[in-house]
Design a protein around this nucleic acid. Sequence first.
DNA 1: ATACACAGTATCCGAGGGATACAGTGGCTT
DNA 2: AAGCCACTGTATCCCTCGGATACTGTGTAT
Lengths: 252, 252
Amino acid sequence: MENSAGPSEVAASPELLWGPHEPSQRGPRPAFTLAQVADTAVRLADRGGIATVSMQRVASELGYTKMALYRYVPGKSELLAIMVETAIGPPPDMRSVRGGWRRRARTWTQLMWATWDRHPWLPGVTTGSRAIGPNETGWTEAGLSAFDATPLSGSQRMSAVSLLSGHIRNTYSAAAAGTQPWTPAGRLDPGLAPFINAARDSFPAITAALGSPGRRTDPREFGLRCILDGIEQLITPAGRPADRARRSPAPT
Amino acid sequence: MENSAGPSEVAASPELLWGPHEPSQRGPRPAFTLAQVADTAVRLADRGGIATVSMQRVASELGYTKMALYRYVPGKSELLAIMVETAIGPPPDMRSVRGGWRRRARTWTQLMWATWDRHPWLPGVTTGSRAIGPNETGWTEAGLSAFDATPLSGSQRMSAVSLLSGHIRNTYSAAAAGTQPWTPAGRLDPGLAPFINAARDSFPAITAALGSPGRRTDPREFGLRCILDGIEQLITPAGRPADRARRSPAPT
DNA sequence: ATACACAGTATCCGAGGGATACAGTGGCTT
DNA sequence: AAGCCACTGTATCCCTCGGATACTGTGTAT
């Protein structure tokens, strides 16, 4: 009803995202701008899902014909790439975030959640090989900088940022649905419930987990907490302060 | 070049996945089976990417017309749903995996990685609201069962499984590309490199991380390790054995 | 023998992305 | 001032896609 990626992948060339677009001199003035195209497309996607974004629709929303768009954008892939850049927006300034690496990483994650929640079509479109723009790169930069004062190696920092941003992708509202047979609220998916219940004997662990009492755990927070705890193990090998030297047989 | 989800979402009805398909009695014999349709479609997707899977293509691969497929499958959404079920395959029997929760969870994750690696189109297709079949549910069941002997609550177990399977989705080869401006091998994306280098001053942390020496960290293993370590904090509050009581001010 | 449920097919439709050829526009050169 | 021509938006065409509908053939139950 609301998801899906366009039929062609977002394998756009990066020029459009990164290059300085000098306005051409000769010839008639363009009727609109690349930014307007992007904004329009993003608005459409936010409202009706990514599937409602077609060249036709975007163009007529702007009041022009489909083919006029191709003067601004080489193709659909590039349009999607620019939509992503636009939706993501400029990265936050992490220098204004006080506190240690943990607080900074957490803040960064929450800022990113807030952005992505506004554009539920993002995860479906940011899979697979594609061109990444300066905004998105800026977010990565900001994420990496959270680990600045940390003993982690460059490679580890990159992995940590990938891990966190992956968690964000996986737990924004719409994408989370459809990945597990239960809803984010921890109940069986309504459509699946009759079938799973009918085969209840084959799924004892699911049945038990759903029926178990206890406080609801927010999957987002649970995941973030686990990840941060895990990273902390690498920074201060055990517990809070370094009260243990180094686990001798590192668990696999 | 190889990614994308079909234009329509996978919002199929679960009947086809779960129901027992009794063969019809009257009438001519079907020329092939639902399983053959699924296999053919999966083969196509494995080879040329999900974009090459069309009713036309699948049908002609089987040697029949496009419309014949609609006798087996209500529509494209359902075809995709069945493809997922088929590609995922039956879940592993976790009873044969010895060891504690950690070893079991790790084994489950690795088995899932092996499966998903064979079908790089899976992540792009399993986003958003959709019907989940018995195989996929079985994998979830298997994952949950890894935490059987654990003090985790049902809600926590579900979150843990979501976290792990999310990590798998995010780190299978093809999906990982396109999510960060670097490759899984830890080098700048070739297409992006000139642009990022040109703006090197704006990305000090990225530049530093990429240029830093030190052993390569496998992002998959890094993430898995962090997640398992994080979960371990919940099971045995600090370090390996319970040599600490409970962190008093739990870090946020 | 006949009815009828079910198989595969032929044909048609609208929407999508995109190529190509064209006409209007307006600054730059002469 | 005249004209070139780069660049604008448009009109038209093509192919592929998912799907609806109406049809013909098939084989089992009555």
